[in-house]
Write a protein that binds this DNA or RNA. Structure first.
Lengths: 173, 173
DNA sequence: ACTGCCATGTAATTTGTTACATGATTAC
DNA sequence: GTAATCATGTAACAAATTACATGGCAGT
């Protein structure tokens, strides 16, 4: 995820590692907010495999490494962005992609979100089945945590339904 | 988290590592579902530090290690359970605790959830501030992912408010 | 015979974190 | 002068995953 956040930021403008951290604090803190201890090694890795490059610059007396995305990096990022993602409560890849969806054609965005919603629906069905087996009428904290799961998944499903409606309305295709 | 899930399960009944995995699949999959590759090493570790013990038994011709929680383990678990937790979108410790709240006095449960809700409220305010700075009126995917965050946090806040209401109603103190 | 389930375990890898270390600039 | 911010980086650790390896039991 960090890998693609970095590439996505660089699609917008050239940046230093420090800039990227600020970006995360200010704009993506609800789904990605990595520490410097992972940002800098990742930059090194991405440079090594040719997805980004950098120039060392000096401003005032502070030295910076200004990073730029390469053509290969762009390709790698777009391939990730176009791949529809699956719902899991444990990662926010779907929000990571959403953040960068302006780089995708609207129809592809809508299609990807529809597919994503399908995976949310599946997750809801799986939880519902478990609930019907283990919480027949009973009220307990065990069931409450399951019911929270369902409420959460349903919120994700409905929010994305509304998003698609908005996207379709704004500029009908 | 896995550590406390294991201890919590053992509070209910003696179990093997395999049983714990099944427990997770069937009852806690929306907030914890570890693989065997982390369950077995964790059991070894917990046994080593004296929080659990085991006896080897043979059933049919299958050997099992049946684990039991120790007094120390119980203490360690209860200390964790009683400590109020903080909201973070990246972990579901709050659901892990919720699942085991039957082991806590109701008033402590309510107090802990109230404190937890305070931390959710703080997270909402932080996101709202960011939103007001970066998304003034503008509509974009970047803002959508932020707005999703807010919607999610608010759902968590309201769901727990309702939970407290239910707890208070059922048996007024 | 073969598949699925029961049952345990290790090794390599992934993906991060926190703490530390360095050093300049800016504002009070 | 001292604290906050700008800027980069490493080392030790943490918590998990996947893939592999082993072997018995139960049903078809």
């Amino acid at each position: 995820m960090l890998e693609f956040a970095i590439l996505g930021f660089l699609l917008e403008r050239d940046m230093t590692g420090y800039d990227m951290k600020q970006m995360m604090v200010m704009r993506t803190s609800n789904f990605i907010d990595a520490s410097f201890g992972s940002i800098y090694p990742m930059l090194k890795r991405l440079e090594k495999i040719g997805l980004i490059t950098f120039v060392e610059i000096v401003e005032g007396n502070r030295f910076k490494k200004m990073y730029t995305i390469t053509a290969m990096g762009r390709e790698h990022f777009m391939e990730w962005l176009q791949t529809p993602c699956t719902f899991s409560p444990f990662d926010f890849e779907y929000l990571g992609k959403l953040f960068f969806y302006k780089h995708l054609k609207k129809n592809d965005v809508i299609l990807n979100i529809e597919l994503f919603r399908g995976t949310v629906q599946e997750a809801i069905e799986k939880l519902s089945e478990i609930e019907s087996i283990t919480c027949e009428g009973k009220e307990s904290f065990e069931c409450a945590s399951l019911q929270f799961g369902k409420a959460y998944y349903e919120m994700v499903l409905n929010w994305h339904e509304k998003l698609i409606a908005d996207l379709t309305k704004t500029n009908p295709s």
